[in-house]
Structures are given as C-alpha cells and as structure tokens.
C-alpha cells in the first residue's frame, strides 16, 4: 500500500503535477508512511530521474520548473511532520538577474535546482536593481542573496550590492553568491561574495555549504 502510494507520488512529481502531489503526499502521511521516505522515495528519486533525463534532452526546463514547484508543495506538507532538525528549510534565497540584464534562463535553472533541493527560493526576476535585491532580502528575511548576470555591464551591480550591504552594516546578515556567463571565481572573490559555482548543479552544494557558515567569513567556490 505504502509502496504503491510512493510510486504514484514519484510519478506525479516527475510529471510536475502539483495538485496530485499534494493529494498523494497527504494520502501517504495518512497511511503512516515515514516523512523521510515521502521526501526521498516520492520526491528526490523522481527529481534524480528528471535530472538524468534533462541531461539527455528527454525533458526540458519547463518540466524541471514544474517539478520544482511540486517538490516545494510536498515539502510544505511534510515539513510539520518532521523532527525540528529534519524539518528545517535548508534556507531562504532571493534570486534575480542584475540590473540592465534581461537574461532569464540560467537564473531560472539555478532557482529550480535550489528549490528542488529543499531551499525556499524567491525569484525576483530580471533587471533587478541593487535596491530591490536588498529590499526583498529584508522583507523576506532571506539567508542568501543570489545574483546572476550574463553581461559584464551588469556584473558591476553585483559589486555595488555587496558594497551597499557593507556600507549599511548589513553584510553580516546575508550570504551573497554570484554567477552567470562572464562571472569567474576570481571576480566573485574580488568583489567580496561568499561564494561562486560554475554550474546550476554546483550552486546547490555551494548554498548548502554556505548555510553552515556565518555570512562574510569564508569564500567557497564549486567548480562543478
């Protein structure tokens, strides 16, 4: 019975069907399935399969994003049933593309990877000003500010944001990560970011590592 529900849940997760994921997650809890099993066998296993299929062009970005939203739904329902330690969100992340840059795909891919990995992600879109990044981080109590840029003329705003956080005495509140086509590890380190990852997959390990540390203490780079 439990295995059957988890199998259906994994399938609904793979299809990105949030409504069905919600129903089946509640059904699994009612049937007494362990919350950890619901996450691993109902959610993570489907996401692993999606990741593999994405790398082979069997599924595409929209399916990943739908699954990201469905995983978020599953976690919202299961979290209250976990122990305090297990149930904690991995962290809250504000993500956007820097001012003057309208490129969306890379940022969305990173947002999805983080979301499916248990982070609470607030995507504030493209062409985001320094003020907006800081204001949204304050409003939502974010742990991490993640900035993306494909244009070197926009990457200056990453430096600007970190400087503003320093000047206003807020740097110790937020971990700052940067990424995007022209962004390199040495640039991220030079402008005082907390971390840099070369790929969307790497951004998950990066944010997990950063959440173990206090902001602005150690630079972490993930070259994967």
């Amino acid at each position: 019975m439990s295995e059957e529900i988890l199998k259906k849940l994994a399938e609904a997760m793979y299809e990105g069907d949030s409504d069905l994921v919600e129903t089946l997650t509640k059904e699994a809890l009612d049937a007494g399935v362990a919350p950890g099993d619901i996450i691993e066998k109902g959610g993570v296993s489907a996401l692993d399969r999606l990741g593999k299929d994405f790398s082979e062009l069997v599924v595409f970005l929209p399916q990943l994003m739908l699954a990201g939203h469905a995983m978020n739904k599953l976690l919202q329902i299961v979290r209250p049933h976990l122990s305090e330690k297990e149930g904690a969100s991995r962290g809250k992340i504000i993500i956007g593309t820097a001012k003057g840059d309208f490129h969306d795909i890379g940022k969305s891919l990173v947002a999805t990877q983080l979301e499916v990995s248990g982070f609470e992600v607030i995507d504030i879109g493209t062409n985001v000003s320094t003020n907006e990044f800081i204001q949204k981080a304050e409003e939502t109590g974010a742990d991490i500010i993640a900035m993306s840029s494909l244009l070197t003329t926009s990457q200056y705003y990453m430096e600007d944001c970190i400087k503003r956080l320093n000047d206003e005495g807020k740097r110790g509140t937020y971990r700052v990560v940067v990424g995007g086509g022209p962004i390199r590890q040495n640039y991220a380190e030079k402008i005082g970011a907390d971390g840099y990852a070369r790929t969307a997959y790497g951004s998950v390990s990066l944010c997990k590592e950063l959440m173990k540390k206090t902001p602005d203490t150690e630079f972490i780079a993930i070259d994967a």
Binding site: K99, G100, Y156
Partner: peptide
C-alpha cells in the same frame, strides 16, 4: 568594452 576611460560601464546608465 566594459570600461569607458577607466570608469565602469554600468548598464542602463549614461555611461552606456
């Protein structure tokens, strides 16, 4: 280029 006479070329500003 991403600088103009040594200044940063900030997107969406008169530097552009």
């Amino acid at each position: 280029i991403d600088t103009v006479m040594g200044r940063p070329l900030l997107a969406d500003t008169p530097y552009e």
